[in-house]
Design a protein around this nucleic acid. Structure first.
Length: 809
RNA sequence: GGAAGUUUAGCUCAGUUGGUAGAGCAUCUGCCUUACAAGCAGGCGGUCAUAGGUUCGAGUCCUAUAACUUCCACCA
């Protein structure tokens, strides 16, 4: 017997512990069942998890559990992304100190400690949400094993010529004092001024107007450009221009990228102010003039402004320009500026020695890879393709930071050549370890690379890191491609893209078959949920505590795939109702099934109908889930379940209660249908509502069915085909019942009120007669009259005031 | 500038391959029905953004327009 009320707090804890202790979700690597492997997103250790992350994991959960129910050997590993800049930024905030203020190793140790604390928190949250990933062991992207795989990947790609070390312009964050990658850029609208400046023509008293938003970079101007087809400015080509205030002389060059109709058609080029400057520098082989330092201060090039922060300098230069009558006018503008997504600081371009992975020369293959993956929903593919088409930087993987995986690289002190670590020595720390063999030049003195790898250089290897936990094969493709990469849409251009790059370069194949892309959970006003804003009221921990893990999972799984959804607590009420109904309905049905052992017998018509309906539902349910359309699958199931409660159970209730009146076989027939269909529904609800379904299953079905958890018991497939004709005819019987209910409702009498008779006109009276007992029972009708006719029609007779005798024919 | 998405009941949204518009919430009318009042039955409520087109038939396919959202690019 189930309890009167379902106590979710107690039951959820109970089953979570049970699953954990009994290894219910263990991946069996010796099994012959088909493997379904998931490249689980490792949470980034840089703060709290919010409802957005949680909902995304709940989608993955449903898919993992679905495949387990289908009989697959599900590999659903668990890990943390706990290295790199995101973690460093988090730790800097926690300790209120910048990394470079501490000795390198001290800072690294604090990072390790802080991430461990966060990981404990994450573990508790995952467990309390009922997650079925391999909680007992996890990978960490800073752990030695990940370091080995990551360094191995570096060495292999370096040897393949895909990685190069070069002094080249790279995106630079003056706040984090490191290079970064194109994928870390984020547009931000910033107020600024458009300044129209006088560039005098050398030796003449005439000037041309050049507009700029960055007058502080005048000290870095190397030339000006005009469009080769710009007739009005052709006269400038054999002249020199004087850079205002700084008085350097520069040439006038031509380039098609200059638009003639913007401003005066004359544009200044510094190395580097923006992306176009970078292009021009390369194309026209221009000199490089660095105007600022790694921490965003002006260099000696700026003369009197040297040492000033960039923005301060901008103001100072503008003042000087005004004083010297070199500023024609200023316009206030708001424009989008590329900023660093980790700190919001405008990104500069700086030339430093960096490690790059060549992606620009493989755009075609990378594009094709996007076409070859299965994207769910399909439309997300466009985002990937769009990103690849617009790639303009090679992937810079070096960071001038501390808490990351070191490059397995030394430089020879004599000849400067790169010395790689040996694979069998990995992982290495070039700042502590030394190469075992001398340089080609004979020198044995080396200096270790101080840069560390970007976190994505390692995260892009999660398929290898994940599978290594089982196979121990390291950077190997033994389980690649994995079946599924799930993540939210913000990670398409980052994690998905980089993972494809690595897999293609290493193995020449895709890292996974399917991608399931979740949407964002936004605040109720539609704005992004930020980790920093995750307050206690709607923190995942609080939500689960208040509403239960099952209800939270129900909410998350009702989000349409890939679509952003505004967070609203009201949405949790439906889940609460469903869980409550599931409990009550099961309690009721199971109360009739005590002592019942299922066996095949001749079934009553409406019981057969229910089973046909169930088989139909099962097909639709599986079809939707195979397309990762969880919400639609769930919706079908719910509709069926509520109809089961309100229609079927009402229809057969009296048969179940009164075998003495309706017959033993008729009663057992209803039990048979109830047994199987409730079991089937519980199993279908199990991926989304793992706790309550387990509680119900274990309190009754487990003893008969013989599994130690519903979650490894497999779906209840009662047949792949169903009788459409029977379903349609049975539905007509429900229409009759509805008509009677309508009649009683309109006459404002209770549903149990007796009526004289029902007169049915229909072409399927033979079928309806088979369900007559049930119809009479549910509608409290004395008699049913039949008229043959093509048009379906139901007429309800008069209400009978007093209690009549039950007619048993 | 390029790309994608959205537009359906008062609100939040479903709507498979074209075939009589759906659910929940809200609202209204009833019902204490031997599981559930956190329930049940019933009602009200929609020119499916707009304009064309294809079709016997369009919420669904095509074209254009508008509004909003997102990604990317530009940003002298």
């Amino acid at each position: 017997m189930l309890d009167k009320k379902y106590n979710f707090a107690e039951k959820e804890k109970k089953w979570q512990d049970y699953w954990f202790e009994n290894d219910i979700y263990k991946f069996d690597k010796d099994s012959t069942k088909p493997i379904y492997s998931i490249d689980t997103p490792p949470p980034t250790c840089n703060g709290k998890i919010h409802m957005g992350h949680l909902s995304s994991y709940m989608h993955i959960e449903t898919i993992a559990r679905h495949h387990r129910m289908l009989g697959d050997n599900v590999y659903f590993p668990f890990g943390f992304d706990d290295n790199g800049l995101p973690t460093e930024r988090y730790v800097e905030k926690v300790i209120k100190k910048r990394a470079y203020e501490l000795p390198r190793q001290t800072f690294v140790n604090i990072c390790l400690d802080e991430t461990r604390k966060l990981e404990e928190e994450f573990f508790d949250l995952y467990k309390s949400a009922g997650f079925s990933c391999g909680l007992k062991k996890h990978y960490s992207s800073i752990a030695p094993r990940a370091q080995t795989i990551s360094q191995h990947s570096f060495i292999e790609l370096y040897k393949k010529g895909k990685i190069y070390h070069a002094e080249a312009p790279a995106l630079w964050c003056t706040e984090c004092r490191t290079a970064c990658a194109q994928s870390e850029l984020e547009d931000k609208d910033i107020d600024s001024t458009f300044n129209y400046l006088k560039f005098y023509i050398s030796g003449e008293d005439k000037y041309v107007t050049v507009a700029t938003t960055r007058p502080e970079m005048l000290c870095g101007v190397v030339c000006v450009f005009i469009n080769p087809n710009d007739e009005k400015n052709q006269y400038l080509l054999d002249k020199k221009l004087i850079v205002p205030y700084f008085n350097t002389e520069v040439s006038v060059l031509t380039d098609e990228l200059v638009s003639m109709d913007k401003g005066s058609g004359v544009v200044m080029c510094c190395t580097f102010g923006d992306n176009v400057d970078k292009e021009w520098q390369r194309k026209h082989n221009l000199p490089i003039k660095e105007c600022f330092t790694a921490d965003g201060r002006m260099t000696a090039l700026a003369g009197e402004f040297a040492g000033m922060p960039i923005l301060e300098c901008r103001k100072a230069v503008i003042d000087k320009l005004k004083e010297n009558d070199l500023l024609i006018k200023q316009e206030n503008i708001t424009h989008a500026v590329s900023t660093h997504d980790r700190c919001g600081t405008p990104i500069e371009i700086a030339v430093k020695k960096q490690w790059f992975i060549d992606v620009l020369s493989h755009k075609d293959e990378l594009y094709q890879a996007g076409l070859d993956c299965n994207w769910y929903p399909k439309t997300m593919r466009a985002r990937y393709l769009n990103w690849v088409e617009n790639l303009s930087w090679n992937w810079c993987i070096s960071r001038q930071r501390f808490f990351g995986i070191p490059f397995p690289v030394w430089f020879c002190k004599n000849c400067g050549k790169v010395k790689l670590a040996e694979i069998e020595d990995l992982p290495v720390d070039p700042l502590k370890d030394q190469p075992k063999t001398p340089c080609e030049c004979g020198c044995t003195d080396f200096v270790g690379e101080t840069d560390v790898m970007d976190t994505w250089a390692t995260s892009s290897l999660t398929p290898q890191i994940c599978t290594d936990m089982e196979t121990g094969l390291g950077l190997s493709d033994s389980m690649i491609p994995m079946n599924l990469r799930p993540n939210a849409h913000d990670n398409i251009r980052v994690w998905d893209f980089y993972t494809i790059v690595k897999s293609l370069y290493h193995f020449g194949k895709l890292p996974w078959k399917d991608l399931m892309i979740s949407g964002y959970v936004t605040s109720s006003d539609g704005s992004k949920l930020a980790k920093s804003k995750a307050n206690s009221a709607n923190s995942p921990q609080e939500i689960i505590k208040t509403y239960s893990a099952d209800v939270t999972r129900y909410w998350a799984n009702n989000m349409a795939l890939g679509k952003d959804t505004a967070f609203s607590l009201a949405e949790f009420d439906n889940g609460k109702k469903l869980v409550n109904k599931l409990w009550n309905a099961s309690k009721f049905v199971l109360s009739f099934l005590e002592g019942y052992t299922p066996r095949e017998i001749e079934l009553e018509t409406m019981d057969k109908w229910l089973i046909e309906k169930y088989k139909e539902l099962y097909c639709r349910f599986i079809k939707y889930l195979d397309r990762y359309e969880i919400a639609l699958a769930l919706n079908e199931l719910e509709k069926f379940f509520w109809s089961f409660c309100d229609n079927y159970v009402e229809l057969v209730k009296r048969r179940l209660y009164n075998p003495d009146i309706y017959g033993e076989r008729e009663c057992e027939s209803a039990k048979y249908a109830c047994y199987h269909v409730l079991l089937g529904m519980l199993k279908m609800f199990a991926p989304v509502l793992p706790h309550i379904t387990e509680e119900i299953y274990m309190s009754y079905y487990a003893a008969i069915e013989g599994y130690k958890s519903i979650h490894i018991s497999g779906y209840h497939n009662m047949g792949d085909t169903f009788d459409k004709d029977m379903i349609a005819k049975g539905d007509k019987v429900l229409d009759i019942v509805t008509t009677v209910r309508q009649f009683k409702s309109e006459n404002k009498v209770s549903l149990k009120t007796f009526i004289e008779d029902i007169t049915i006109t229909s072409p399927i009276n033979d079928f309806i007669k088979l369900a007559e007992v049930d119809i009479k029972a549910v509608s409290s009708a004395h008699a049913i009259k039949y008229i043959e006719g093509e048009e379906f029609n139901v007429v309800v007779g008069n209400v009978v005031p007093e209690e009549p005798q039950i007619d048993n024919n």
